[in-house]
C-alpha cells in the first residue's frame, strides 16, 4: 500500500494546508452562526475532518505513520460522539419539537 503516500504527495502540501484551514474555518463559522443543533453537529464534524486531512497530509509528507494512527483515533472518537450527540438531539427534538439551540438555554445560572 506504499503508493498512497506517493499519490498524496502529488499535490503540494500547501494546498492541503489551505484546504484544511478553509474547511476548519467553515466549521467554526458554522458552529458560531447556525442555530440548528444538527447543522452545528455537522460543522463540528467538518472541523474534525479538517484536522484529519491535515494529519494525513503531514503524515504522508513526513513519512511518519503516527499521524494516520491519530486519524483513526479521531474517527473512532467522532463516531462515539455522534452516537451520543445524535441521541441527545433526537431526545431533545422529541421533547421540545425543535433542534434550535437558542431555545435550549435552560442550563444557566
Amino acid at each position: 500500500m506504499n503508493h498512497i503516500p506517493e499519490v498524496i504527495r502529488t499535490i503540494p502540501l500547501d494546498y492541503y494546508l489551505y484546504f484544511s484551514v478553509a474547511l476548519f474555518v467553515i466549521g467554526v463559522i458554522g458552529v458560531l452562526t447556525r442555530r440548528n443543533a444538527i447543522v452545528i453537529f455537522m460543522c463540528v464534524e467538518l472541523m474534525l475532518n479538517a484536522v484529519n486531512v491535515l494529519l494525513t497530509a503531514l503524515s504522508a509528507y513526513r513519512a511518519d505513520a503516527n499521524g494516520q494512527v491519530f486519524v483513526f483515533f479521531i474517527m473512532a472518537v467522532a463516531a462515539a460522539e455522534v452516537c451520543v450527540g445524535l441521541a441527545i438531539i433526537v431526545m431533545t427534538y422529541r421533547n421540545i419539537r425543535s433542534t434550535d439551540v437558542q431555545i435550549l438555554n435552560y442550563l444557566k445560572w
Binding site: L32, R35, I40, V101, Q102, L104, N105, Y106, K108, W109
Partner: peptide, 17 residues
C-alpha cells in the same frame, strides 16, 4: 460570576473561539 453562564451555546462557543 454565575451570570456568565447564560445558557446560550453560541455565546459559549464564541468565547471559546
Amino acid at each position: 460570576l454565575r451570570y456568565a453562564q447564560s445558557g446560550a451555546i453560541g455565546f459559549y462557543v464564541l468565547v471559546m473561539v
